[in-house]
Simulated scan of single mutants.
Amino acid sequence: MLRIHFTAEDLLGVRFADGPAPLVELGLAVAMLQRHDGGPGFARWRRSLSTPRTRAAVAPLRQLVPPDGAGPLFLDPPSDDLDQGLEAVRGSTTTLVHRELTRVTTKGGLPATTLLRRLADQDRDAWRYLERAVRAAYPDLVGTAWPRLRTGFDTDLAWRARVQREHGLRGMLAGLHPGSRWRGSVLEIPAEREVDVRPGGAGLVLMPSAQWTGGPLAGPYPLGTLLVYPAVTPLPLLAGPAPHGRAQDGREAQDDPIAALLGRTRAAVLRLADREPTTSQLAAELGISLASASEHARALRRAGLVTTVRSGRAVRHSRTGLGHRLLSP
């Protein structure tokens, strides 16, 4: 059982993540490859990844991530992109690494392999080896599925918003996973282990994943407790979104007046701005360079259609009222 002990401040601080996080999704994919649930769709997904190249890439990561998905927290920091995440991994403190490796080898049941011992000793070659393994596994396990993971995330948020409108915040939280219930201010969620989580006033960040079928996973992160849970629509049932500005059958959309006015890519940037994406996220979503994404956002900002604000080291773009009205039917 996973028990989340809420304070009033925690309930006020419940919010959703901006989107799926690359390294979180990678860890979940590694766990899913070791599981046998999810039905025929995930069985086909596992078979599609059962190639010598993918198995070799995943082998080091399986030493760190058990089938229940509760791998070491230093391995899957929430981040906007892979490079940013790996930078956070490299910056992990010795205390965090020791604590998390001890946890996965005692409570998680993973063997204390040579790799884990060398990581705990801060062996530079071991950490470089781990980074190479992450980069090798990422394209097959996450990169090719990213559009569908994003679709699954957005679909789940839309559904949770509707549930919250009809049943309130407590009802929405209790509906994140079957069998969940409230006992006073404690949310009890069926899970594979006994875990008590106390956000301590920092709030709860919700992150649905379309490729996870296990129980919700919770862990402390700098911006609050992160709760990862299975999205309402699993990955095998999701079709990738059509490219922005194109019809579903792949032909160029001839009846999009916004694309005709702004250009297809710039219209796509404006539509994506409802999520307040970073420049990196725009580039990844649209398959364009960072420089190109920045230039498109700048042009829309000059036209008064988006605003840009700095959030830490990232820059986020959001639609203005004029931008919303332009897209209104």
Rank of each mutant, 00 (worst) to 15 (best):
H167K: 09
R150S: 10
V163P: 03
E188D: 12
P190L: 06
H244F: 12
M207F: 00
A239G: 02
R135M: 06
G200F: 06
R165A: 15
G224V: 03
V142S: 04
R150T: 07
D140W: 03
R124T: 14
T213W: 08
L226H: 13
V163D: 00
W146S: 11
R124G: 04
V142P: 05
L141F: 11
V186P: 07
T155D: 08
L149W: 06
H244Q: 05
L169I: 02
D125V: 15
P208D: 07
P190C: 07
G201Y: 08
L130S: 05
E194A: 15
G240L: 01
R148N: 04
V134Y: 03
E194N: 13
E194I: 10
P220D: 14
P190Y: 05
T151W: 05
W212V: 08
L217K: 10
E166H: 12
A133V: 01
L157H: 09
R132V: 00
P220N: 10
R118M: 05
G168D: 09
S185A: 15
V142E: 09
T213D: 06
Q164I: 01
W159V: 15
L223R: 15
G179E: 04
V205T: 13
R183N: 08
A133F: 06
R181T: 01
Q248D: 12
P216T: 01
Q164S: 09
A210Q: 10
G224I: 02
L238P: 10
S209Y: 03
W212T: 11
A126L: 01
L226D: 03
R246A: 12
L119K: 11
V205M: 13
V134G: 01
D156P: 02
S185D: 15
E166N: 08
G184V: 12
R118Q: 15
S185T: 14
Y138T: 05
T213Q: 14
D154V: 09
Q164K: 13
V142Q: 04
L130K: 08
T155I: 04
